[in-house]
Computed example of a mutant assay.
Amino acid sequence: MDYSQLRFVVEIVETGSISKAASNLFISQPNLSNQIANLEKILGKNIFYRSNRGVTLTSYGVEVYSYAKALVEQYAMVEKKLMTRSNENKIKIASFGSEVINSQFFEICKRYNENNYEFNLCECGVEAAIQKVNMRDCDVALIIYSDFQQNKLGQLLTAQELELKNLFQGQLKIHVSQKYPLSKKSNITRKDLEGLFHVKKAYLFEGMFSLDYELQFLGIPENQKTILANGNKTYNDALHNLPSFAIEIDWKCNKALPSDLNRIPYENKNLPITCGLVKRKNEFLKEELSFFVEKLIDAYG
């Protein structure tokens, strides 16, 4: 059995005719019929019922077709990827959302802006980011985790032969728009949050690294008025247009960025959050990525 025979099966099924399939494949009809007969002999079962009206799939043929179709589509995707002129140099980073990370990512783009260069910053949660590094969809991942999550994070990284380098720390705080009186407070209490919408960045509250337990630890009240935001624009618009709050990380950053959202301590409780860099073991960082990490460490002091 070879790829061509499976491709022939797909073509016959989708054209509904051996003669039409032979024409599309630029081979003779007898040759195509022989190829299918040989495949059926190898498999030991019939793929098609043959009649004067043409061919139809047997129940076994339906299964063969489904696998053949998946293989043909995968082959076409790989062929397109390899044959298309694509960027030779690629920087692919998975990361949680952060204005400072974005700004330092743009510094890479400015510095390494040679021809045929591709930059990719994918915003996602911890699990998805780790998976992207493991599957080589990204070079590195920037993730956040609390002390409560440290053990399971270590187990997951070890199992996937990945390693972690801690970069800097911050604290979970209440995120509030400056347009609301609550933003003027130096410390926010549980009572202050009553009746407000709780705006959540969806990727921070999914999978095994959800921050739900951290919110319980801090004593943030459960709120049925919740808005799950899948992007920064929705997140920011919700905080500006609704009486609301969010939980965000306050990084002590040396790089000042304009913002009309204040980060305020909650009942003077502290919960450290660590930002770490995940990469594959025994692989050196590219020059561009080393530059990026240095810029981040400089920015976060």
Rank of each mutant, 00 (worst) to 15 (best):
F217Q: 15
K173F: 09
K20D: 13
L172D: 01
C138V: 08
F245T: 05
L211K: 11
K225S: 08
L82A: 10
G301T: 03
F148S: 15
S51L: 11
L182M: 04
A22K: 00
T56W: 08
S95T: 11
K201H: 13
E163D: 10
A128S: 11
L167D: 00
K69C: 06
Q104D: 11
L71I: 01
P181R: 09
Q5F: 11
L82W: 02
Y235D: 12
F209D: 01
D237C: 07
L211D: 09
A76T: 08
C109P: 02
E79A: 07
E287T: 14
L172Q: 01
V133R: 02
F205H: 08
Q155Y: 14
I93H: 05
N262L: 10
E79V: 05
E283M: 05
E222G: 07
A256H: 15
I130V: 15
P221D: 04
Q131N: 15
E283I: 06
I36V: 04
E114V: 01
V72C: 06
K184L: 11
E194Y: 05
M77N: 14
Y145H: 13
A128Y: 05
Q171V: 08
A159G: 07
N24R: 15
Y145N: 08
T84W: 03
S98G: 01
S244L: 02
E248T: 08
I143A: 01
C138S: 14
E127N: 07
Q74L: 09
R50F: 13
E206N: 15
F26I: 10
F168P: 00
A159R: 07
Q29C: 06
V10D: 07
K185W: 03
N232P: 07
S98M: 00
I188R: 06
C124Q: 12
I108L: 15
T274S: 05
K295F: 06
F284D: 12
S28V: 10
